[in-house]
Design a protein around this nucleic acid. Structure first.
Lengths: 329, 329
DNA sequence: TTGTACGCGTTATCAA
DNA sequence: TTGATAACGCGTACAA
């Protein structure tokens, strides 16, 4: 591969001039431009994105991290029932660590604040699955959605692979010879819940088992309401859309004097902080929150440097964390 | 962020020694090791993956690209009915171009040949969705699957986002006020077909339309067999799992004297070479083959450099290419 | 308008 | 066993 020096030599100019033409910065004559472009053409020269980054990192990047007012409240400790504070602060830690390594400055702001700070940003990360205003979605800044994916919009996104995690853990339970595995899920219009549902469904069907599913709201009442229906199915394992639901199921079973994991095993999804300290502690599928932030930051820097510009969704694999709400092997 | 020089200064050694400890290469005393590790700890030092790459690129990388014997045959022009030769050669072009930019040497080999060439590779790309032998899946080399995703195995993979593409194009047709949109698909045990199916299904349901689907084998007979059933539904649009099926539908409609796009519109998926030259030319959803190869190559280089090691699936967005088998706006 | 020289972080080589 | 240094490819401040 030719480098900038080869181009400079062939065009009979300095590398600085090549760079100027390439990036359309500074002054250069039309004649020089043509010489340089010809040399680039001839050598089939393509700047190395890695070296580009290394050279640019010196001057730093400015990355806006956009959150809804709701998430801002959560981060300010106003509420944390569902472990959301932990979730977002862990993702943010991944973002900040990545920023640190790339000499990037993070500007944390709400959706509204972005309107005035737009010009300062080389790129933005939009955090969380709250509704994103159109002026953000349509602005022409490099952007990456974090823990959110908008179907049909072709926006770069980082999410966790709920389909794969659900399939993996359900298939694992089936291999342990459990057959009556029930899935309790939140509303399927949410992409995340739906993908976990589909993973569960596929694992069951591929093993010739009948999927049994219940939709609930994420409230204790909603769970209590159907707990008898669930128990009537004599489930060996209850797999839920997320940890908060799993914990509510656990509560409901306790109040019915059903022993966990002896009589019913429970598996959640997310691995929120509380899951380690329930009684018994909750087996769950871990979402890699830190990595999610880290990968998102790296992705937006890539985009700023003009690398891998074609948009795509990044789905991080999960991991089964086995605690005491399942029986183990 | 601390750099290697800061660490060297604090530990009172040279940067070379820091590097030696870090990478466990060359000789150094236990005492030195402890000093260095302490300094690294204290400064929270993390080597920059970018700079690492730049330093490494000098010595080059060796990337194995693994293909099945079947794909090898296709590439050697033994057959090309389904545009597969074009598909794989375009992906390969993306791989080679990426390799070029990263000073990587590509070693193209079959699954069997890999057994003996394993030691030469810094990383491997496994191309295509033919069954991959376990000795490849289980070998401890950095690997990336290209146009393949194995559920539940947590292996890095690059695929095209069939779900999103299908949703996008079906939703677009619905917005053009067509309601009778039929989906003809291949066997749903293939992940790719299933995702396209799910995208179709979601777009229909979200618009309160009833999904109508037919499963077929990828043969002309299989299509001819159901063409009357399909026509009985008076479809305005027929959306298929891929271009080969779309072309067969086109043939079947022709032999029934059904005008395309006047009476029935057809949309394929993939954008294989032949799609531009059918009569009428085929509207389709383009899969970004070149980018798929390119991103895959970049990903494996990343892994070799120890960057973003947590595994994930990369799903490239698609694009609707409108030709003459649909009516346009 | 153009060129020189430096810096980014790492590692191999060679010398000590 | 350790240190000094060049090299990887690019962008830009500064000098010319």
């Amino acid at each position: 591969m030719a480098n900038i020096e080869d181009v400079a030599k062939l065009a009979n100019v300095s590398i600085a001039t090549v760079s100027r033409v390439l990036n359309n910065k500074g002054k250069y004559s039309e004649k020089t431009k043509i010489k340089v472009l010809k040399a680039i053409e001839e050598l089939n020269y393509k700047p190395s994105s890695q070296a580009k980054h290394l050279a640019k990192v010196k001057y730093g990047f400015k990355i806006g991290v956009l959150i809804s007012s709701r998430i801002k409240n959560i981060l300010e400790k106003k509420r944390n029932e569902y472990g959301e504070m932990d979730f977002y602060s862990t993702v943010l830690k991944g973002i900040y660590d990545g920023a640190n390594e790339n000499k990037a400055e993070i500007i944390l702001m709400t959706f509204e604040e972005f309107i005035n700070k737009k010009k300062e940003c080389d790129g933005i990360l939009v955090l969380g699955s709250d509704k994103i205003p159109d002026y953000i979605l349509n602005c022409n800044i490099h952007k990456v959605l974090v823990d959110n994916y908008i179907v049909g919009k072709k926006i770069n996104a980082i999410i966790s692979n709920g389909f794969d995690g659900a399939y993996y853990v359900v298939d694992k339970m089936i291999k342990r010879n459990y057959k009556r595995i029930i899935h309790i899920h939140g509303p399927l219009e949410f992409y995340g819940f739906r993908r976990r549902f589909e993973g569960y469904e596929l694992a069951m069907k591929q093993n010739n088992l009948l999927p049994i599913t219940y939709e609930v709201a994420e409230t204790q009442e909603s769970i209590n309401y159907i707990i008898d229906l669930i128990l009537a199915k004599k489930p060996e394992v209850v797999f839920t859309s997320n940890d908060p639901i799993a914990i509510m199921v656990l509560n409901a079973l306790k109040s019915k004097n059903v022993k966990v994991p002896e009589n019913v095993q429970i598996i959640g999804f997310d691995d929120i902080v509380f899951s380690a300290s329930t009684e018994p502690s909750l087996s769950t599928v871990k979402v890699f929150k830190y990595e999610m932030g880290n990968v998102a930051l790296e992705r937006v820097i890539e985009l700023i440097n003009g690398k891998n510009l074609h948009p795509y969704v990044t789905s991080l694999f999960t991991e089964f964390i086995e605690r005491k709400s399942t029986k183990g092997v």
